[in-house]
Design a protein around this nucleic acid. Structure first.
Length: 486
RNA sequence: GGCGGCGUACCCAAGUGGCAAGGGAGAGGUCUGCAAAACCUUUAUCCAGCGGUUCGAAUCCGCUCGCCGCCUCCA
């Protein structure tokens, strides 16, 4: 497996620190507001990465933190006149709901910053003892000039950072680039007792305390959005390596942004869509597919048109599954079968899918390419179905292809429902004012008309349903309904 | 100002040295009572532009243009 490492700026062969095991820490959220699609991207991308590692037999320990104490949480709590715990709890719960709806698996450990204050204080004490940090009026700062490798992740030097500096000069800091490990609490703010007085942790220190606690002082993968490279991850490296004297993380992975009109989707620009808003209009599988159809490091432009395309692609998959199922049912048991050559070729294609899928994923988790391979096989499957396959051999192959598609789709956590479930979900989201039974009644009515060759009546039923977004597909001796994709 | 990234068909998108995946949209066809789905053909002699390296480049190097990101909280 080759993985792009932000630290080295290159794709590198993945060699875990402990053979067969992967320690993985991904920055979660600060619980001060509902999540938008950008948060979904990070979560989904790293969820797919984790699933792929497991698929390949690695034992993965995944840690995803929740920041439940921070300036923004305090500000929000004050504004709403509630406690910071209330705010953090509310948005942590919202986050969990969003993630569950998106099909993002839970991390093995989901630590909250406030539960690790003691550990953070230990680290800060250690840093002060080693001369990497200093206290000033109840604050504690990391002395960046002491850490010679500061800037190695974000690829810039202290001098360069100072040059373009938009940093506020703070009297208490020795150097404007020094960052807070501990902040003295102001009146009315939550606080914890510490050697430096009542205060609360700075943002970066929690990740050091929690990641090393659960994954050890050195671990394999640390991920997050590209906007965390600086200062967050840079600072994590500085404080952790200064403290432990060991390399912190072997592979740093960062996902690209979601853009709207080419601009980064962000809170401050106000050009964001919340996960809830999106899921009101689109099935979660569509969102996952959309986010995985572009390589995780590239920017991805958000638009309705894009989501509709994703919807069409998924529908193509489920439509093919329907065809496969119909064919399996209608294929009679017979040793004698379709042309040898056709079945042989098709059998080969099925067996290469997993290989191609893994090749794609092995190359820095190229989910877009992997999806391409899946759709190539879908086309070939449809072609095979068009050849009107018959016999036991063909039947087996069709069962195999269905299984293979499901297996690789499962790694990305897509294509994991039945076509019926897919259409029911679409029907629900679109608020089509019909029950499934209503539709079946209409189909029966139309079927009767068709038997009498009353084409006008039959077509009217079709039109009626079409107006509601339901389309009918006539098979040999049955009719199936689907939700129209457009 | 510093650092980094991107620019592939009508749209999305993979491809980082050897004849340009995949999806959507369009056109024509096969199939169908009509449809839909599916399949077939078709849409980039070419990968922002210019120059260079090479037997050979979308892929490497240089320059130009355009877009974006980080340098402040940010997935």
């Amino acid at each position: 497996m080759r993985i792009y490492n932000t630290l080295t700026g290159k794709k590198e062969e993945f060699v875990p620190i402990n053979p067969g095991k992967v320690g993985m820490y991904v920055c979660g959220i600060t619980a001060y507001d509902v999540c938008h699609l950008g948060h979904a991207r990070s979560a989904i991308v790293f969820d797919a990465i984790k699933r792929y590692f497991r698929y390949r037999g690695f034992e993965v320990k995944h840690v995803r933190n929740i920041t439940d104490i921070d300036d923004k949480i305090i500000a929000r709590a004050q504004k709403e006149n509630v406690t910071t715990e209330d705010i953090a709890k509310k948005y942590t719960d919202e986050y969990s709901i969003d993630m569950a709806r998106l099909g993002v698996s839970k991390a093995d450990v989901e630590p909250k910053a406030t539960e690790y204050i003691a550990g953070m204080i230990d680290v800060i004490n250690g840093l002060i003892a080693k001369g990497y940090a200093y206290s000033a009026n109840g604050d504690v700062y990391f002395r960046v000039s002491r850490f010679s490798e500061y800037g190695k992740l974000s690829k810039r030097t202290l001098d360069e950072m100072m040059a373009g500096a938009r940093v506020e000069v703070d009297e208490k800091k020795e150097n404007p680039m020094d960052f807070a490990l501990w902040k003295a609490s102001k009146p009315g703010e939550p606080w914890w007792e510490s050697p430096w007085g009542k205060g609360r942790p700075g943002w970066h220190i929690e990740c050091t305390a929690m990641s090393t606690k659960h994954l050890g002082e050195s671990f394999d993968i640390h991920g997050g959005g590209a906007d965390l490279i600086f200062p967050h991850h840079e600072n994590e490296i500085a404080q952790t390596e200064a403290f432990t004297g060991k390399p912190f993380v072997k592979y740093w992975l960062h996902n690209g942004f979601i853009t709207v009109d080419k601009e980064k989707m962000s809170k401050s620009l106000g050009n964001f869509f919340t996960i809830k808003e999106i899921l009101d209009k689109y099935d979660p599988e569509i969102v996952r597919y959309f986010l995985l159809s572009t390589h995780y490091r590239s920017p991805i432009e958000f638009s309705d048109a894009q989501l509709k395309e994703a919807e069409a692609a998924i529908d193509r998959y489920y439509t093919t599954v329907l065809r496969i199922e119909d064919a399996i049912q209608n294929t009679e048991h017979r040793a004698q079968s379709t042309e040898q050559k056709i079945t042989e070729d098709f059998g080969k294609l099925i067996s290469t899918l997993k290989e191609k899928f893994m090749d794609a994923m092995n190359d820095d988790f190229n989910t877009a390419l992997a999806l391409g391979h899946i759709f190539e096989l879908i086309r070939e499957t449809n072609k095979f179905l068009d050849s009107k396959p018959s016999g036991d051999k063909a039947k087996t192959l069709l069962a195999n292809v269905k299984e293979a598609l499901k297996e690789v789709g499962g790694v990305l956590n897509i294509f994991n429902r039945t076509p019926d479930e897919w259409y029911r979900s679409l029907m629900k989201i679109r608020n089509i004012g019909l029950s499934e039974q209503d539709i079946l009644n209409k189909i029966a009515q139309r079927q009767e008309a068709r038997q009498k060759k009353d084409w006008a009546l039959a077509d009217n039923v079709r039109k009626e349903l079409d107006a509601l977004g339901i389309i009918l597909e006539d098979k040999k001796d049955s009719t199936r309904w689907k939700v129209r994709i457009s």
